[in-house]
């Protein structure tokens, strides 16, 4: 079971602003998910390695060879705010 405070904590970490109804709904939905996980935890899985990846591949590596970067106008083109040189953002400390 997950409570309202935990939902608000997770929402804050994810920078989400939830309405009261959404908090209500999320509390229910997240609890259902956790219940499901708890159900699985009832199984004896001591000898089973945790699954970190679902594809059976390893060592997909790229040679250390440069590829062209974007022109600056291209990089900045989709930003909501720039000074023509950098991406403008509110100062984190402000």
């Amino acid at each position: 079971m997950i409570d309202r405070d935990q939902v608000l904590h997770v929402a804050r970490l994810a920078r989400l602003r939830l309405t009261d109804e959404e908090v209500e709904r999320m509390t229910g939905e997240l609890s259902t998910i956790l219940d499901h996980i708890e159900k699985i935890s009832e199984l004896d899985l001591d000898d089973v390695a945790p699954t970190s990846h679902v594809v059976a591949m390893e060592n997909v590596l790229r040679p250390d060879e440069p590829r062209p970067s974007l022109p600056r106008e291209g990089a900045l083109g989709q930003a909501p705010d720039t000074d023509g040189v950098g991406f403008r953002v509110p100062s984190p400390g402000a």
């Binding site: 950098g86 403008r88 953002v89 100062s91 400390g93």
Partner: peptide, 21 residues
């Protein structure tokens, strides 16, 4: 790298920084 822009302007009244990726 986060470059504190200082004089180069403010965003919504708050101080702005510029990001160099």
């Amino acid at each position: 790298k986060l470059v504190h822009a200082g004089a180069s302007g403010r965003i919504h009244g708050a101080e702005a920084s510029a990001v160099d990726f």
